[in-house]
Every structure is written in structure tokens, then in C-alpha cells.
Amino acid sequence: MTAIPDTRPKMRGARFLQSRGMRRFFRHKLAVLGLAMITLIAVACIVGPWLLPHDMLDIDIRGRFSPPLTDTYLFGTDEMGRDLAARLFMAGRVSLMVGVAAMVLSTVVGTVIGLLAGHFGGALSTALMRFTDAFLCFPQIFLLLALAAFLEPDAMMITIIIALTSWMEIARIVAAEIRSLRERDFVTAARVSGASHAWIMFRELLPNAAGPIIVAATLTVARAILIEAYVSFLGYGIQPPLPSWGNMLNNAQQYLDSAPWLAIVPGVAITLAVTSFNFIGDGLRDALDARSDMP
């Protein structure tokens, strides 16, 4: 057999960026747009409050209900004359943090449950999947509102509640993926070598299920942001004075006629963030599709 000269890149990092998957992602125009948008929103939320001339708590009684682009108020002011831009960015920190934290939590829970169910099969799998189905049976919003009304809703609590009501889908995706991977010969090869359960789960199975998990996680951020907004809008979520995009909307509904920008500005922010995450998720789905990854 003739040896082929080794001309390919060796570094893992380089491999990743030049990989077909990443090229496919960057060909996906909407996904790139989404990524740019989210980066922009995140940067604005992080540095915005420092750059703006007003603190979000500064009250300017004479400047109440200023429409956007009045003086130094980029998005105008609210009913107490507070800078809407400053509030929007601070609220963005809270909303994005809640979204990302809820995603991390639900992904971890869902992945662990799915991995156990998929790898061990049998009675354990049946029990875990029944448990998952039981959670899925509850209408999510009802569960959320009940929990939120019952527990003290601070940001941490809201995150936990959202995560508790959204890990099920990831668990099912992971379980299905693991079940099909488990039949692959390389897993049998590991068993033949005497590999432990932990090795098989974390070294053989999980890395190969990463694609669908990442996609599901991205879409979960979008959903978590939306849920937080929804619950806070109804007044059961993040409580003022801590702003979130959802409770800004709650506040705005009384002034819809006189100061519509109070609702439009946070509404647009929510829409942009959620659609961006959805676009990124779609792009990742194409890029990480395991089938197209294998030649």
C-alpha cells in the first residue's frame, strides 16, 4: 500500500474552523445574521449602561414620556422620566442571563437523564422516560405560573423554574440519539476492550451526540427568553425594580396609547433576541448534522 504524504492540518482548533461543518454554518446567511445580532445585543447590554449618560434609576421628572431620540435619551423615557435605553440594556442583562442559565441547567438535566436512559436501556430507561413524559403532560405555562405564584420569584428562582419545565425535550433527543449510537460498532469495540460505563457514556457516546444537544440548547435559550418575558409580563416573574424585558412590557401596557415606544422597544428586543437564537439553531442544525459530517 502506498503511503499518502501527510498534508492535512494537525491542530484541532484549525481543524474545527476549517471543518466542513463550520463552512456550512457560515454559508447559512440567516444564522450568520443571527450570530451578529446576538453579539451586538450582548455587547450593548454589557457595555451600554456604562456608556450612556443616564443611570437606569435616574429620575428626570420634567422629561417624563420623552419619545425616542429626545436630548440624550436614545429610546426616550418612561413614566418616571427614567432613561429607557439604560433600562433596556440592564433588563437585557437579566433576560439574557436568565435565558442562558436556564438553558445550561435544562441541558445538563436533560442530557444526564437522556444519557442514562439511552445507555442503560431496560427498566431504568423505561422509568426515566415515563418520568420525562409525566413532566411533558403538564401544560408548561400552567406549571410555570403555579410555581412562580407559589415560590418567591427572584431571577435565580425563575431560572430554575424555567429549566425545570424545559429539560424534557433535550432528554428525549439525547435518549434517542444515544440509543442509536449505542448500536454502533465502535461502542461494541469499547465494550470488548472492557471499558467502564462511565467511559462509554462520556467518551464514546456523548461527544458523538454533541451536535443535536448543541442545537437543542440553542433553541432552548430562545424559548427561555420568551418564557421569562411571558411570565414577567404577567407579573409573576422578575419583580421591579429589577428590570427585565418582560416586566418592562408589563409596565408599558397602561401607556400603550400615549407612549407606545415603552412597549415597542422591549418588544423589538425580545423578538430580535429570540429570532436570532432560532436562526443560529437552524444554522447549527445544518452544520452539525452528523450524517453530513461522515464522508
Binding site: 460498532d185 461494541t188 470488548v192 472492557g194 458523538n208
Partner: peptide, 17 residues
């Protein structure tokens, strides 16, 4: 296990990608 080993049919699924 160490004394008995196997080789698989499908060269594409038998190695962890």
C-alpha cells in the same frame, strides 16, 4: 477480554469519529 478481540464489518461505524 484482553485475550479475545473482534474486528467489525462496517469500517465506517467501527471507529469513533
Amino acid at each position: 477480554r484482553r485475550r479475545m478481540q473482534m474486528v467489525f464489518q462496517d469500517p465506517f461505524s467501527s471507529l469513533n469519529p
